[in-house]
C-alpha cells in the first residue's frame, strides 16, 4: 500500500505541486491525470524514492520511503517506465531478468530460479514467443508488455506505470490495458498515469487529477471526471456524453447554437 500525506513534490527548491493526499492499496488502480508539466512524472519519482519529497510524507506499507533501502523499495514497488529504444540490444528475457535484481545477493547474477520466474512473467503477459527477440525490434506495445513483465518478475505487490499507453496504436493500447486490469484482478496495486480520461474511467478504482500545483480532484471516476473539472484543468470546454451502450465518453463541448 502506498500512502501520501500532505506531500509536496518538486526538484531542488522549486515546488511543482503540494498538498497531495492519496492512497492506493493492493487490488486497486489509481489513475493519475493532469496536463503536461503538472507534475505527474515528478510525483512518480517521489513515490519511487528517486527524488526526495519537498514536504509531507510517502509511506510504503507504513514505512517512510526515504528509510527503505533501494533493494527493499524495489521489492515493494515496481516501476514500469515508458517503453523507449535502448542503447544496448537486450533480448526480452535479458530485460525481464533485470527485474530480479532486488532479489539477488550483491555479487550474484540471476540463476535458474530467476530464469524460471522471468519466463513465467513473460508468459503471463502473453509474449513468451518473443523471449529471445531483441527488445528494440518488437513493437512498442510488445516492448511495453515486456517492461510490465519485468515489473511482474520483480515480485513487488505495487506497480507504478508511467503513461504505459502513450504512443501506442489502438490495438496495443487495448492489449496493455487488458493486461493491467488482469494484474489488478490478481491483487496488484497499480498507479497508472494517462492523458486519456476515458481510459481512467474504464480502469480506475480512484482518480487523482493534478493541476495548478495541487490535487485538483481525487475520488472515484464519477466524482472526479466531471465536465466541470476536466474543462477547468485542461482549459478547454469539455462535455461528457453517454453512448447508447451506457458508456460515458469525453468530447469537446459543442458551442451552443
Amino acid at each position: 500500500m502506498i500512502v501520501t500525506g500532505n506531500l509536496a513534490i518538486g526538484y531542488g527548491t522549486a515546488q511543482v505541486a503540494g498538498g497531495i493526499d492519496l492512497s492506493v492499496a493492493q487490488g486497486e488502480i489509481l489513475c493519475l491525470l493532469g496536463p503536461n508539466g503538472a507534475g505527474k512524472t515528478t510525483l512518480f519519482k517521489t513515490l519511487l524514492g528517486l527524488i526526495p519529497a519537498l514536504g509531507g510524507k510517502v509511506e510504503i506499507n507504513g514505512i517512510p520511503v526515504d528509510t527503505l533501502s533501494r533493494a527493499a523499495l524495489a521489492r515493494a514497488v515496481a516501476y514500469v517506465p515508458q517503453a523507449q529504444v535502448m542503447e544496448f540490444a537486450y533480448t526480452v528475457l535479458d530485460l525481464v531478468l533485470m527485474g530480479r535484481t532486488a532479489h539477488l545477493g550483491p555479487f550474484a547474477a540471476p540463476g535458474a530460479v530467476d530464469h524460471d520466474r522471468a519466463r513465467a512473467a513473460i508468459d503471463e503477459l502473453g509474449i513468451l514467443h518473443l523471449s529471445d527477440r531483441e527488445a528494440n525490434r518488437i513493437s512498442g506495445g510488445q516492448r511495453q508488455l515486456a517492461l510490465i513483465a519485468r515489473a511482474l518478475a520483480q515480485d513487488a505487490p505495487m506497480m507504478v506505470m508511467d503513461e504505459p499507453t502513450a504512443s501506442l496504436d489502438l490495438g496495443n493500447r487495448f492489449l496493455v490495458l487488458s493486461r493491467v486490469q488482469a494484474l489488478r484482478d490478481r491483487g496488484f496495486g497499480v498507479v497508472f498515469s494517462t492523458h486519456d480520461p476515458d481510459q481512467a474511467r474504464e480502469l480506475a478504482t480512484r482518480v487523482a487529477v493534478i493541476s495548478g500545483g495541487r490535487l485538483a480532484a481525487y475520488g472515484t471516476p464519477d466524482e472526479t471526471l466531471t465536465a466541470a473539472t476536466l474543462s477547468e484543468v485542461h482549459g478547454v470546454p469539455v462535455a461528457l456524453e453517454r453512448t447508447d451502450t451506457g458508456r460515458t465518453v469525453i468530447a469537446p463541448a459543442r458551442p451552443a447554437s
Binding site: 519519482k45 519511487l48 524514492g49 528517486l50 533501502s69 533501494r70 533493494a71 523499495l73 524495489a74 521489492r75 514497488v77 515496481a78 516501476y79 517506465p81 535502448m86 542503447e87 544496448f88 533485470m98 527485474g99 535484481t101 532486488a102 539477488l104 550483491p106 555479487f107 550474484a108 547474477a109 540471476p110 520483480q154
Partner: peptide
C-alpha cells in the same frame, strides 16, 4: 566481476536502475 550484474543494470539509466534496486 563481483558487481557484473548490477553494473549491467546501470545501462538502463539511473532512474530505472534505482527502481530495480541498484544503489
Amino acid at each position: 566481476v563481483l558487481l557484473r550484474w548490477r553494473i549491467g543494470v546501470l545501462s538502463l539509466g539511473d532512474d530505472e536502475a534505482r527502481a530495480l534496486g541498484v544503489n
